[in-house]
Design a protein around this nucleic acid. Structure first.
Length: 224
DNA sequence: TCATTAAATTGTT
DNA sequence: AACAATTTAATGA
């Protein structure tokens, strides 16, 4: 088992924190595991923690009034989310589902607020993250209206490489075509065909359970 | 280290 | 949704 302090130190928001702040943060952390397909929480549930993905893949989605499932985002290893619900002290607005075996790091509310009140570094992180997410949601609205399934796949892929929201090193992501389909809201067959075409266009490289992005900018604004 | 097997993933229909 | 082909991971000689 990894020490809490290591989790805190490795977290993206720890980069601008002081030693004292990191130490305090680590004491407010706990971990919880979820098996593939398990609901972490349903819309309307209370989840009084700020949540980070230690390892795995989480789908953030909602069911529209017409009953259609809609995915807002995927959270991969290293990303943190849910600050909105914790800050406002309200139930979660979205469903959270573990798409694969997943370990979550949970920061309790008291610790989150302590950082919020005390740490300028932490606040800088929060502002950056909220700003990036705003940009991504605007892009989501656009893509939902106009894009072909193939472009959905391309743009969903590009989101995983937002350096603020998803602190990954390199240009690869470990994700199966089925998982990507779940996130993009298209069938596995569409994902497969789309990826092959994107490979032909020289934008990505596809291996087993792994996708390498070669031209991120082209994916971000993919239209056809 | 290599061979065998089971499980996951991919490509196609 | 179903099927075959491919790749990986796990097991044990």
């Amino acid at each position: 088992m990894i020490a809490k302090e290591d989790i805190a130190r490795a977290a993206i928001w720890a980069r601008e924190l002081t030693e004292d702040e990191i130490e305090r943060a680590s004491r407010g952390l706990s971990e919880r595991s979820y098996s593939k397909g398990a609901y972490i929480c349903h819309r309307g549930d209370r989840l009084d923690y700020w949540t980070g993905v230690s390892d795995g893949l989480v789908k953030i989605s909602a069911i529209s009034r017409s009953g259609k499932a809609m995915t807002f985002a995927g959270a991969t290893t290293g990303s943190w989310f849910g600050e909105g619900s914790v800050l406002k002290d309200e139930p979660r607005q979205y469903d959270l589902v573990a798409i694969r075996e997943t370990r979550l790091a949970l920061m309790n509310r008291a610790t989150f607020f302590w950082l919020y009140e005390s740490s300028t570094g932490f606040n800088r992180f929060l502002v950056r993250q909220l700003n990036e997410r705003m940009g991504q949601f605007i892009a989501t609205i656009e893509y939902d209206r106009i894009l072909t399934p193939k472009a959905r796949v391309a743009r969903n892929l590009s989101w995983f490489f937002n350096p603020v929201l998803y602190p990954r090193v390199g240009t690869e992501i470990e994700i199966s075509q089925e998982e990507l389909g779940l996130l993009a809201g298209v069938s596995r067959a569409i994902v497969n065909k789309s990826l092959q075409e994107l490979v032909d266009e020289g934008l990505v490289k596809v291996e087993h359970s792994r996708i390498t992005v070669l031209h991120l900018e082209a994916l971000k604004s993919y239209e056809a």
